[in-house]
Nucleic acid binder design. Structure first.
Lengths: 338, 338
DNA sequence: TTGTATGCGTTATCAC
DNA sequence: GTGATAACGCATACAA
């Protein structure tokens, strides 16, 4: 199985390499029979166009990158699934990068792909509003970028997000209606895009209902589980909320653990709602009320935006912003009665 | 920000492009000061070596592919995380592909990457034992492959798996010791590698304990949830097992749902153990006893095997087989008393 | 519709 | 330690 290149194949066929090339490019002007003959012999000789050469020639790789803060979270896995699905349909390949929420890794990533390797980027960012300089410096005509879920407010790129403000508002309203007076908002970083937007929805719902927004009820959590547990223990012991809105899945789970430890009953003593796209939260004890984002659809929408742009070949005048609706799935953890 | 190439950069520096190239290759013989000067000016002019050209020249891309059956399963997300971690450390990039357990997609994938694009492949396969022809035809000297978790028994490639036989045996033994007499084995495809090995462990544990292996207790499930639910309902109603060993996470969740519907109590009426790497199974009602595979470690080991091979540049005499131990985490779902 | 010639931007080999 | 030159394998402008 010796490697064969286009020239050798052309020789065997008694054709020029350009003709052979055209056969593989799906090119317009080539006689169908010639094309068929080329493909047939190529198959026999096990010839495949060399991607490295063709990438260089075209300055394109048919590869896109998707950058996510983490993979442990089911939400992002589903997004990648969506991205991969549409990419495959359009014959693109997808490179996956994790930043662990570390903005330096986000920058390193951009550095590592500058000048070839990918045709475009899908990214859920890791920094806060002021951290977007590295994105502003990049020429989107050379390297189109689409942001999703976690974005920079001050950067004007195409985006796909969910209705964070509305869903947070609705969820808070739901807790209020079910009798909560002191709702805690649990966030990983309240300066980051979604943490911030969701905070706003929460606050506005409180205000709208004539309730005060208390700093002590807004808890900025860490990544480490142990640290969060401690912080939440003191929250539950000292501040005594009667409701919790967890802006990310993980914090709801911490809430459950800590409640178990402290003998706090959900939903009797504390009602819980969380952003989560894990299907089995239905089996938790009690089943968890969630705001569920259409994860796979987010991935698909973002990929579609990017690939349409890549295939069209030109930057649209105004970056598109897509907003997908989340779903409030009411379960036992926020029930009025147990 | 006009794009600049190595020739222009060399001109600015009054050097030849070879020297400039050497500076970026981290090459041995180049005067440190020259190198520093080149890097400095390159930085100023925002020059970056073009990957496409470099890939063509070297016939290498520093990209590896990881192929998984699905992404919804946390196990594979964690594996990808592990792969990406070691890849990043060695300056490799990782392409992700999903096959949905469809062997045709597995073949399509191999086709799409033949002749460039990736330097090596990590794969968890989708077919049964007889389906490995497409792997045998590939020249591992050109395209090294490492299999993980789900492998083909009849294909002699480097592999990283977990102790499926032992863990299944141990889990069955555990159920037996806690009083089960009729243990059902739930599998997605009992002809596939892990399904088969785990079945063997289950069977041998039964035999060892003088219990019969009953076909009616071995349930080959589907992918669709609804179909499984039906099948399991009739299993629970008619065959009445008192224990369940679920060879994949998803089937344990189905079990929980069906038990809820049929008012079967876990663990009183039915004890459940499942392969799962989802951390929050601790919060299920009741908490789920699991066989937990070291997912991230599997990814790391597989990636290490592959990258060592790529960096060494030559095929080792004998493909390495790594076996990582799983953990039986005993929780309430298999408890003797509730 | 097909062939010819050139260049994509590097890296490697060989001189100096 | 540095420079000149020849690939790497293909895709395209242009000619036929």
């Amino acid at each position: 199985m010796t490697k064969i290149d286009i020239i050798q194949l052309a020789k065997v066929l008694n054709l020029s390499k350009s003709t052979v090339s055209r056969a593989f490019m799906g090119s317009s002007d080539i006689k169908p029979e010639t094309r068929a003959r080329i493909l047939k012999v190529a198959e026999e000789l096990n010839y495949r166009p060399n991607h490295y050469a063709s990438n260089l020639r075209k300055q394109k790789s048919k590869i896109i990158a998707v950058v996510v803060p983490e993979l442990g979270n089911n939400f992002f896995s589903q997004i990648i699934r969506g991205v991969e699905r549409v990419a495959k349909a359009k014959d693109y390949h997808v490179l996956v990068y994790t930043t662990d929420g570390d903005i330096q890794k986000e920058k390193d990533f951009l550095n590592s792909i500058s000048n070839g390797r990918v045709d475009g980027v899908l990214m859920s960012v890791s920094g806060a509003a002021g951290d977007s300089a590295h994105l502003k410096n990049i020429d989107v005509n050379r390297l189109p970028i689409v942001l999703f879920d976690r974005t920079y407010a001050d950067v004007n790129l195409p985006k796909v997000v969910t209705d964070d403000y509305e869903s947070s508002y609705t969820a808070t309203q739901h807790l209020l209606e079910n009798g909560c007076k002191r709702i805690a908002y649990l966030v990983v970083n309240k300066e980051h895009s979604i943490g911030k937007t969701r905070l706003q929805g929460y606050q506005d719902a409180l205000k709208k209902n004539g309730l005060p927004v208390l700093d002590e009820l807004i808890v900025d959590c860490a990544h480490a589980y142990a640290e969060n547990a401690t912080r939440m223990e003191s929250l539950f012991r000292e501040v005594k909320p009667d409701g919790v809105l967890a802006s990310v899945e993980r914090l709801a789970f911490s809430t459950y653990y800590v409640c178990q430890a402290l003998n706090i009953r959900i939903p009797e003593d504390l009602k819980v709602v969380a952003y989560s796209s894990l299907e089995i939260v239905q089996l938790l004890n009690p089943s968890l009320t969630t705001i569920t984002q259409p994860a796979e659809a987010v991935g698909e929408a973002a990929a579609t935006l990017l690939l349409d742009r890549l295939i069209a070949g030109e930057e649209p005048e105004e970056p598109q912003h897509v907003i997908l609706p989340s779903n409030l799935l009411i379960r036992k953890s926020s029930a009025l009665e147990a």
